[in-house]
Design a protein around this nucleic acid. Structure first.
Lengths: 247, 247
DNA sequence: GTAGAAGTTGACGTAACGTCAAAGTCAACC
DNA sequence: GGTTGACTTTGACGTTACGTCAACTTCTAC
C-alpha cells in the first residue's frame, strides 16, 4: 500500500506542509518520489510518523525526536517505551487535575495562602520531559548516540532540579563526605525521585544510568566543567544507593 | 503574602522571562510594581497563573487563554471547568496509549496494513482543543466576550471540520432546504458529533450554543461574511435538532 | 480542451518565548 | 562607605515549527 501526501495528511491530521517540513529536515523522508515530484509513503513511513506524533504530543522538539526515532531499532521495543511514556503523561494530567481539585477546595474555603500552600498550586506542571525521555532512550541505545554538534546543547538545557542536585553533590565533596554517607544518599534519593517522575529505574538501570553519566564523553565533559571529582563520585553514590535501596 | 518574580518563577517552574512576557501582554499583570520597578505578585495572581498554566498544558494559545482567564468570574466554577478539561486530556493520552498498543500488536504480528487499518494508527492525535474549549467558555460566559481586535482571529483558526459544516449549510441554503429538512439535520448531526468530541451538549446547552453563534457580534460577523442567511439558518437548524434529538 | 483538485517549490510571517547585553537595585560583609 | 554577588529591569535579536501564500505543474473527470 502506498499513500500520497494528502492521504497521509488526512489520516494523521497533520498538514501537508508539516509532512514536507519533516521531509526537508530528514525526519520523515517519503518512501519514494515519483517522476512528477510527488511524495509517496508506505507502511514503514506511517509507523515512523506515528512515533513522531507521539513524541510531539509528549512535548519533545524535533531534534530530540530525530534522535529517538531511528531506523534499525526493534520497533516493538520502541513502541513499548512510547506506550509507557504516554501512560506517564496520562498520569501527569491526572496529577494536574488533582492539583486543580485542591485549588478548588482552597478557593471555596476562602483559604489564605501561605508560602507553603502556594507551592502546592503548581504541582504537576514540571515537564522536563525532553531531557528525561532522551536520557532514557540514550541509556537504552547509548551506543548509537547522535554526534551532531546540536546535541552538545543537551547539558545546557537541564532543568533546575538537576542543577540543585549537582550543587549538593559538590557541597558533599567539599565536606569530604563519602559516597555512602547518609547525606549523600539523601541527595541521590532526590535524584532518584526526579528521575522517577517519568520512569522508574530498577537497580540495574539506575546503575546503568550512573555509568552513562561517568562514561559518556559529553556527560563527563560537562561534569568535569563543574568539578573533576563529580563524575566518579556520582557513579559511586548512585551505585551505593541502587545496591542498598533498589532491586 | 507577596511574592517576587523569582519566587513565583521558582514555585511555578516558569521563567521570569515568561512572567515578564505575560505582564507585557496584559495576561498576568503583577499585583503591584515597587518604586524600584520590581514586580510583586499576590494570591490572586498566583491563582490566575495556575489557570494560565493549565490552559497552556492543554495546548491553548495565549490569545485564547486571555479570553478564558478573566477577573470577576466565579473562580470555583472556572476551576471546575479546567478540572474537567484536564481529565479529558488525561483520557486522550490513555487513548493514545491504546493506539500505540494496537500498533505494537500489529508490528509484532507482522501485519500488513490496509487502508482501513492505517487510520487506526492515528486515533487520539486530533486535538482541536483550542476551538472547543474556547467555545465552551463562550457558551458559559458569552455575555462577557472580549472585544479586542486580536480576538477576531478566532474564526479564522477554525478547523476543517467546521469549515466543511459551513460549506454544507450554504449548499443547503442554495438548494432552498428548510432547517428541518433531513439533509440539513444530517449536517447538524455532524456538527453535534464534532462538538461531542470534547463535551456533550444537552438540549439546553446546544440551543444556547446556537444562540451564541447567532447573537455574538463576532460570530455573526463571520457568518455574514460567508452568507448573510447563515446565522439564523444555523440557529433554526440546531434548535430543530436539539428539540427533536436531545433531552 | 476545461475545470478543479492535488501536488510541488520558494519564501515570508507568526507565536511564545529563550538568550543575551546593559544597567539598576538590594543585601550581606568587610 | 565600598565591594560583591544575587536579583531585577528594559531592550532586542534569535529560535522553533510550522502557517500562509504565491506561482506553477500534474492529475483526473467531464
Amino acid at each position: 500500500m502506498t499513500w500520497s501526501t494528502a492521504q497521509v495528511a488526512r489520516m494523521s491530521k497533520v498538514t501537508s506542509r508539516t509532512l514536507r517540513h519533516y521531509d526537508e529536515i530528514g525526519l520523515l523522508p517519503p518512501s519514494r518520489v515519483g517522476a512528477n515530484g510527488y511524495r509517496f509513503y508506505e507502511q514503514e513511513q506511517l509507523l515512523r510518523l506515528q512515533q513522531i506524533l507521539v513524541l510531539r504530543e509528549l512535548g519533545l522538539g524535533l531534534d530530540a525526536i530525530a534522535e529517538i526515532v531511528r531506523d534499525g531499532r526493534d520497533q516493538a521495543a520502541v513502541l513499548r517505551m512510547h506506550h509507557r511514556w504516554l501512560l506517564a503523561e496520562r498520569d501527569r494530567f491526572d496529577r494536574l487535575a488533582k492539583t486543580v481539585s485542591r485549588t478548588i477546595t482552597d478557593v471555596e474555603g476562602n483559604r489564605i495562602m501561605t508560602k507553603k500552600s502556594a507551592e502546592h498550586w503548581f504541582e504537576g506542571f514540571d515537564q522536563p520531559t525532553q531531557q528525561h525521555l532522551q536520557q532514557e532512550a540514550r541509556e537504552r541505545w547509548g551506543e548509537s548516540v547522535d554526534t551532531t554538534p546540536k546535541s552538545t546543547d543537551w547539558w545546557r538545557t537541564q532543568g533546575q532540579g538537576w542543577v540543585a542536585i549537582v550543587d549538593e553533590l559538590i557541597a558533599h565533596l567539599d565536606a569530604d563526605r563519602r559516597a555512602d554517607d547518609p547525606a549523600v544518599q539523601r541527595t541521590v534519593e532526590g535524584h532518584y525521585q526526579w528521575i522517577k517522575g517519568h520512569w522508574t529505574p530498577n537497580r540495574e538501570s539506575y546503575i546503568g544510568l550512573a555509568d552513562v553519566y561517568a562514561d559518556d564523553p559529553r556527560f563527563r565533559a560537562n561534569f568535569d566543567k563543574s568539578d573533576p571529582r563529580l563524575a566518579e563520585f556520582l557513579r559511586a553514590a548512585i551505585t551505593e544507593y541502587a545496591n542498598t535501596k533498589l532491586s
